[in-house]
């Protein structure tokens, strides 16, 4: 059975890279750097999100870097820098430019927060930043809501990847509006779509993949699990299961019961009545 699944394992392309895993993993909130490293490896993810923050003066460790960055480099995984903390297109663009220099990649997870309470992305600033970054040669992975029109605007300015939220960042509530997510999938079959944020359980990831999404990006669900390494393995399996289920074609729902066991030849059929 394992050989069969391996044979079915698909490859896909995103941002000019060919990958095997459809799970994108975050690098924050783990109990320790060693735990993060093990979880990333077990997850099978080939893309990890990273960020930039103020560096203290006099930090001379590791060529001006740090233990975290050394670990990520040693894993040999694609990095996807985010613009977390940005509240305007200008802030996000500057952060993206800085990230490109530090991380040596033109990939950027574009995050422009519009509301501090629910960390909902600002659609207007996100679209504005995406348009400028694409013109500057970035491969933009925009974090957005499940709003179809915003997705359309992002596609209009050249985004080839769109990352709608499942629900609020770090909430673990899963897919709040699967119908909206499905509508985006159906409207943009040519785009790479990744559910980003809100995933709490492996079953949420499976559900996202069953909708036909190309990938799932999550962090808290693994890092905040009681056993992050085991949860990383669970998400690896759940994403694969959801993708296989999508490719296999899910049966149509029915309004009424329908027996799966053949009724022809049923013994004692209506022969004995009280």
């Amino acid at each position: 059975m394992t050989k069969f699944i391996e044979a079915q394992a698909d490859t896909w392309e995103i941002g000019g890279k060919t990958l095997n895993s459809r799970l994108l993993i975050g690098s924050a909130l783990y109990p320790s750097p060693a735990n993060m490293e093990e979880a990333i490896k077990i997850s099978g993810a080939q893309i990890v999100t990273v960020s930039l923050r103020r560096q203290a003066a006099g930090d001379t460790t590791s060529k001006g870097g740090n233990q975290f960055w050394d670990i990520i480099k040693s894993i040999g995984i694609e990095v996807l820098p985010n613009t977390a903390g940005s509240h305007s297109a200008k802030e996000a663009i500057t952060t993206a430019q800085m990230a490109r220099e530090v991380f040596g990649t033109n990939w950027v997870k574009l995050e422009v927060i519009g509301d501090q309470y629910n960390l909902q992305p600002d659609p207007f600033e996100t679209v504005k930043a995406a348009e400028i970054l694409i013109k500057e040669g970035f491969e933009v992975f925009p974090y957005t809501t499940d709003d179809l029109v915003v997705a359309k605007r992002l596609a209009d300015v050249g985004c080839k990847i769109i990352m709608p939220w499942g629900s609020m960042i770090g909430s673990g509530k899963g897919l709040m509006n699967p119908d909206n997510l499905l509508a985006i999938r159906k409207q943009f079959p040519e785009l790479k779509l990744i559910i980003d944020a809100g995933i709490g359980k492996p079953s949420h990831a499976t559900q996202a993949m069953e909708l036909g999404y190309d990938g799932v990006l999550l962090n808290s669900a693994i890092a905040l699990a009681q056993d992050p390494v085991k949860m990383a393995d669970a998400f690896r399996v759940s994403v694969e299961a959801g993708r296989l289920g999508y490719e296999a074609g899910v049966m149509k729902e029915r309004e009424f019961a329908s027996p799966s066991t053949p009724t022809v030849g049923t013994p004692f059929w209506h022969q004995f009545k009280d």
């Binding site: 560096q55 003066a57 060529k63 001006g64 740090n66 960055w69 430019q97």
Partner: peptide
């Protein structure tokens, strides 16, 4: 002068990279 050493950082001046 500010004792930042190494190459693993990026810089913005007045909000511009």
């Amino acid at each position: 002068a500010l004792e930042y050493k190494g190459e693993g950082f990026a810089l913005a001046l007045n909000g511009t990279f």
